[in-house]
């Protein structure tokens, strides 16, 4: 089995993102960048599948600026075999990302595409579903457990009501949730070895995709702040406050 894993370069999840004063975007200069944490879980899962002997090749793919090579190198150090970068400095919206990934899928013919359930920058949670629609293949979103049985996979999904299990035929697209696994740390020797693994970069523009479905980002603003609260000293005082506010 061949697995394609997407890795998006995003602002690290520990960074408290700030909106620029002029409302033109969010401050990303000098901010720590990382692999989208959900994508990292997707890659970890691919590596575990390969370590179990159920896959023989893992290809990581990213769409983003040239600096995304850092995240792809980290992915190679974790255990991916090859990397592909579709390089662009534009903010890529989900449909374009899905169309670009379809292009890669058609060239690479993977049995499985593993992706994060959402990227923690735009929080769209669309690209995996769009890719599976464009590809005409099954989707299994928000996966917390994946079991293979020949050309079929049973996927347990985290849904609002609890857990749901569906079975999909391969090839398929799966988007992963937090509890699927805990990604490994990369060790220094692997980082050194990863420098020799192949990384192909080409401009996203070469695919000739149109951006005519793109939305316009009109303005960015900070979220409304909740007013400062007060500290109560005892349970009795808390209960009084709640009664005063008509909440009890």
């Amino acid at each position: 089995m061949k697995i394609l894993v997407t890795l998006k370069r995003v602002v690290d999840y520990n960074v408290r993102v700030r909106v620029k004063n002029d409302g033109s975007g969010v401050e990303t200069d000098g901010v720590k960048m990382s692999i989208n944490p959900f994508d990292e879980i997707a890659l970890e899962e691919a590596i575990r599948i390969k370590e179990r002997g159920e896959a023989d090749e893992i290809v990581v793919v990213s769409i983003g600026p040239d600096a995304s090579q850092q995240q792809l190198r980290t992915g190679l150090a974790m255990g991916a075999d090859r990397a592909i970068l579709l390089e662009t400095d534009q903010w890529v919206q989900p449909l374009t990302a899905a169309q670009a990934l379809l292009n890669v899928v058609e060239a690479e013919t993977p049995d499985l595409v593993l992706m994060g359930k959402q990227a923690i920058d735009d929080d769209c949670s669309q690209t995996g579903q769009m890719l599976s629609a464009l590809w005409g293949r099954p989707q299994a979103t928000f996966a917390s457990k994946i079991v293979f049985n020949d050309r079929r996979a049973e996927v347990t999904r985290e849904v609002d009501a609890g857990l749901e299990t569906i079975a999909v035929e391969l090839p398929a697209v799966m988007t992963v949730d937090l509890r699927l696994n805990e990604p490994r740390f990369v060790k220094l020797p692997e980082i050194m070895k990863a420098k020799k693994k192949p990384l192909d970069s080409k401009p996203l523009a070469e695919l000739g995709l149109s951006a005519d479905q793109d939305f316009e980002m009109v303005a960015f603003e900070p979220p409304p702040q909740r007013g400062g609260g007060k500290t109560v000293e005892s349970v009795a005082e808390l209960v009084d406050e709640l009664k005063t506010r008509g909440l009890l």
Partner: peptide, 14 residues
């Protein structure tokens, strides 16, 4: 909301 709600973006559909 984007960035886990740390920013709000106004989006216009052409």
């Amino acid at each position: 909301p984007i960035y886990a709600g740390n920013a709000i973006v106004t989006v216009r559909v052409p």
